[in-house]
Every structure is written in C-alpha cells, then in structure tokens.
Design a binder for these strands. Structure first.
Lengths: 113, 113
DNA sequence: TTACAATATTCGCAAATTCTAATATCGCGA
DNA sequence: TCGCGATATTAGAATTTGCGAATATTGTAA
C-alpha cells in the first residue's frame, strides 16, 4: 500500500514539529530570517543543540538556508508550515477553553461517555 | 515564560499527530464517524492498540466519542485538524517534488550551501 | 598557511514512545 | 445476577528521541 508510506512520511513531518524548541524556532523565523548566532542568542539553548534542531527541520524541508560569509541564515521553507502551526494552535486553544485543566498540570483524562 | 508552556502544549498536539496509524484514523474519520469495531476491521491493527491510539487522541481533543449501546463511535473533534493535516501533506508533497529521493529509501540529507 | 569565528556532526545515555499480551470495565440481555 | 461482546487499561520489552560533551568543517582575514 502506497498510502501507508504516505502516512509514514506525513507522521515524520508531524514528528519534526513535535518539539517545543523547534516550534519556537519556527515562530521566530516567521517574522524574518535569522542566522544561527542570532537564534542562539535569542533562545535559551546551546549552539550545538540548536544546530541539531535546524538539521532535522532542514531535512524535512521545513526550513531552508542561505549562506553569507561565516553566517548561515535560516528561513521557513514553505509558508504553509506557518498556516498549519496556526491551525494546530487554534485547535489547542479551543480544547483548552472547553476543559481548562491542562494549563496547570491537572492531567484529568478525557472520559468516554 | 507563558510562551514556553504554549510551545510545550503545541508540541504535544503535534506529537499526537506524529504516528502513521493515528493519521490513518483521522483520515478515515474525516468521511464519517466510526465505531471502534469498524475501525479495527478497516485497519490492520489490534483492538488494544487501536484503543490506545484513540485514547491519546481523545485526551488531546482530536477526536470525540458518542456511545450507542455497546458501541462507541468516534468522530473528529475539530474540523481544523483536517485542515492542518491537509496543509502538512501539501508541504510534504511539495518537498518530495523538489528532491524526489525520500520516496524510495534514499535518505540523502539536505545540504547547507 | 595559520588562526579564529560560525556552524555542523558524532557519540553516549536518560527519557519517552510504541507495540503485544494480559486483564479490566462497561452495557445489555437471558 | 451471570455471561458475553465491545471497549479500555496496564505492564513490560524494544525502539526512538533529545541533549550535552567533544570534535569536525567551513569561510575569512592576517
């Protein structure tokens, strides 16, 4: 089944977005491109770790790069990424509204009727 | 930082979508609601495992349930989920077009310039 | 060519995920 | 109440992921 392969690839895209630091990177890059150094300074994260996250996103086409001397500038690879992230954030916020527990550590499970 | 917490929650939504089986479930539910039994028969997966996946998605508000006698019917909890999935699939397909390696196991890394 | 700054990669380990097997719960009819 | 079908939960092993530490690469200027 070719469908199965698509789900696997699709899941790997989601997996790439499934990290708070990477989401913050995306959020910062939506305003403008940034160099690795700029990102390192803006975020609380080591340069090596940042570079790892960027590599993961690069391989999935989520960000793309432009070199300028010693610096490498990262930008979003596809505007649809931002749209998808915004949609997911809306889903999150709507879910928080109808059951405002999650915000402060209460992990009350959603019950079945 | 309240932002950080949001990124963590957002990442957990993405994590929930980061599984091929769960994406297939979402894809099946977009057409119509289905009972656990119907899903079990339609997908190649054990009932226990399916139930686990459904529980994960339930807790994140991605699916919701309706009971009818012994059967529990699942449906999507928010139409925006489908939109987000479609967008991510477009990103995936566009990325595959510009570098058609991934499809057949060649994991050539995206290089920096 | 050498040195240095910016960035990337590799390695090893703790923590998180996923799956199967086994068990539990829930609703209904006899 | 008892038994059964549908669904849910738990436990444990195997795999994957995230991160720090160390090291490598790349581009530039002296």
């Amino acid at each position: 089944m070719v469908e199965t392969q698509l789900y696997v690839l699709h899941a790997s895209i989601c997996q790439t977005l499934a990290n708070p630091k990477r989401l913050e990177i995306i959020d910062r890059l939506r305003k403008s491109e940034m160099s690795v150094m700029q990102l390192t300074e803006a975020m609380q994260i080591s340069q090596a770790n940042l570079s790892q996250h960027l590599a993961v996103m690069r391989q999935k086409g989520i960000v793309k790069t432009r070199r300028e001397g010693l610096n490498v500038y990262y930008q979003l690879g596809n505007p649809k990424i931002v749209q998808a992230c915004d949609l997911m954030r809306e889903v999150l916020l709507e879910h928080l509204e109808t059951g405002a527990e999650l915000v402060r550590g209460k992990q009350e499970k959603e019950s079945i009727p």
